[in-house]
């Protein structure tokens, strides 16, 4: 510290002032405007994360790793990873697989905005309201089961709430619009002239999709998968309200919540939160690693 002060003094005495030198490297009064926001995030995001990480190694009892040991030896805890993946991976894949053809149709629509507006509604309403709505709608006396019985598809109401399928449905209703709108923004970002060029060069509809669109879209789809997966993996309110929080849909965030607010074991809760973060990171990194295989760069065409 004192070294730099001395050095700065010398600079002031000879040559351009410190002010000028810093400005030349991009530091001036304007740059300082970033400090309040950065300080806030450091205090409320970086610090708690670091604090949580350290806290997770300071368990109530036992050695530094005992929280993690407990997590991976207690089936009531470690199975939550599997249960969460069992929900989040199929939902994310389904959302992505369905979003792609729909986005390809919607891209040709003239009144896209009406559809996108409708699809934004469930995202805006959020998971709690969707859970409450689905409790009514998918319940044994709800309109969904009634319709199926009236049509004659089933004899007895399907059990669709307070189990895996209730949570699955809520993740679909929340996740599909999110995935779809992301995919749509990637699809519409591709210069339509590329498809026309491929067509004039003799590529039929399927070849245009596999040789032009898919390779260009792949990085975007990878990002979409990651964002959608991370959202689905952190499912919480609907797993409690619509699922079976003590059994089939005891997802990892429920375990973390219970550790923190029912057992008041913040150290254990932090450990579970860290594990949650690591699983998400692992899937995201795995997905991003495959991105290296694809083309990355502008998709809007190659103008000038």
């Amino acid at each position: 510290m004192t070294m730099t002060v001395l050095a700065e003094k010398q600079i002031i005495e000879s040559g351009p002032s410190l002010h000028q030198r810093l400005a030349a490297r991009g530091f001036d009064a304007v740059t300082l405007l970033v400090i309040p926001a950065f300080a806030l995030l450091a205090l409320l995001f970086v610090y708690p994360f670091a604090y949580g990480l350290i806290l997770s190694f300071e368990p109530k009892a036992g050695s530094a790793w005992s929280n993690y040991q407990r997590f991976f030896t207690d089936p009531y805890l470690y199975t939550t990873i599997w249960k969460t993946l069992l929900l989040s991976v199929p939902v994310t894949v389904l959302n992505l697989v369905v979003s792609l053809p729909v986005a390809f149709r919607v891209r040709l629509m003239y009144r896209q905005r009406l559809l996108t507006t409708i699809l934004v509604v469930p995202i805006t309403l959020g998971t709690v309201l969707i859970a409450e709505g689905l409790l009514n709608y998918l319940g044994p006396q709800g309109w969904f089961n009634r319709t199926l019985i009236a049509v004659g598809l089933i004899d007895h109401p399907l059990r669709l709430v307070h189990n895996y399928w209730g949570v699955f449905a809520s993740l679909l209703i929340n996740g599909f619009p999110f995935t779809f709108l992301l995919v749509l923004s990637y699809v519409t970002g591709i210069d339509p002239a590329l498809e026309q060029a491929a067509a004039t060069l003799g590529a039929n509809a399927r070849q245009r999709f596999t040789s032009v669109f898919l390779p260009i879209l792949m990085p975007g789809l990878a990002i979409t998968f990651c964002l959608s997966f991370v959202q689905a993996f952190s499912v919480f309110p609907s797993a409690v309200l619509l699922g079976e929080p003590a059994g089939q849909t005891r997802v990892i965030s429920i375990a973390a919540y219970q550790a923190a607010f029912e057992e008041y074991d913040y150290s254990m809760a932090s450990a579970i939160a860290m594990i949650m973060g690591i699983v998400q990171l692992a899937i995201v990194l795995g997905m991003m690693a495959t991105r290296g295989l694809f083309y990355r760069g502008p998709v809007a065409g190659t103008k000038g």
């Binding site: 995030l41 949580g52 806290l55 964002l227 991370v230 952190s234 913040y266 809760a269 939160a273 998400q280």
Partner: peptide
């Protein structure tokens, strides 16, 4: 400026990491 990428990362992470994940240490 130097360090801009790190700042951008810190800004990006809270949008990518789900709230429940950072919410528990934050609440602590």
């Amino acid at each position: 400026f130097a360090g801009k990428k790190i700042i951008m990362l810190v800004i990006l992470l809270p949008l990518i990491v789900p709230p429940i994940t950072f919410g528990i240490p934050l609440a602590t």
